[in-house]
Write a protein that binds this DNA or RNA. Structure first.
Lengths: 149, 149
DNA sequence: AGCGATTATATCGTGTGCGATGTATATGGG
DNA sequence: CCCATATACATCGCACACGATATAATCGCT
């Protein structure tokens, strides 16, 4: 079977369109909290580990400073976090949650439950899907590095 | 287990980060062809079914005209497709491939092979992953419609 | 035929992503 | 101590996405 693939047959498109579908699911839930979807992901990373350098956050989220700097500035302006130079190394910037940023974690818990329900509620299957995707991601990142990325 | 989830435990983040990883994989392969990743997806859709209205393309790609119109204009400027009003209904715009747009399909075949290899090459497993993601997407879209999306 | 509602596309503003480049700080070899 | 190099972050430009809104064409009801 060597015919050209239909768009619905491409794994890359499934990932692309599920990503947008999930963002569309989150958006109306996040807007009342004054958050965008990427901003929410930044908060999730900080709730797990606070007071981190921009690069370390970027390693978690797979984002470079050209994306993170303006994003973090907007979040600073919204009083969700602070950005302060590290006195030990003036090059690096420490990102830390404010009380407001921390306080949103409780509301996010309800949000997670809501999203889980929209996804079908079968937690075991969703966890399996997540693990397969992470395996794929790790493989792609290895590939990238081996080609000098 | 009711503790807050780590970012790597969120399915939404797996999808988000795999999507970017795939885009990063495609980008260096598409740039020599003068294409961006979303533009490539538009071409895949048109290779399957040419001469379509913007809305119909949008239904395939899950994109609205606010995204598609400028994207298609750029592709028209790159001589990949034409945009012409439908004489039967002057509201609608017919998007059709040019020879150049059609000719890229051959080169894209090599590209698909290359991507498949980077993903690990186990076609059956990748197809299974794709099907699970499509099931999830359909569930999310149904959810969206049932809430008046 | 007339006109409000619907449909199809376009425009605008904001917020990501990212390649390319710039700037400031630290580090290490001589 | 000096300077090349590396590191950490910032800036710029372009291309998506998308909510909100606008515009033009068609439809449907009377």
């Amino acid at each position: 079977m060597d015919r050209p693939l239909n768009i619905d047959e491409l794994l890359c498109f499934s990932v692309y369109s599920v990503n947008h579908a999930i963002a569309r699911l989150y958006r109306p839930l996040l807007t009342p909290l004054g958050l965008t979807y990427p901003q929410y992901l930044v908060l999730v990373a900080l709730w797990d580990r606070d007071k981190r350098r921009v690069n370390d956050l970027g390693a978690d989220l797979q984002l470079d400073t050209n994306t993170l700097t303006p994003l973090l500035k907007r979040m600073e302006a919204a009083d969700l976090l602070t950005r302060q130079r590290n006195p030990q190394d003036e090059r690096s910037l420490i990102v830390a949650l404010t009380d407001k940023g921390r306080s949103l974690q409780e509301k996010a818990a309800e949000l997670t439950a809501c999203v889980l329900e929209a996804m079908g509620g079968d937690v075991a299957e969703l966890a399996d899907l997540r693990d397969r995707l992470q395996t794929l991601r790790d493989r792609l990142e290895g590939e990238e590095r081996s080609r000098g990325g």
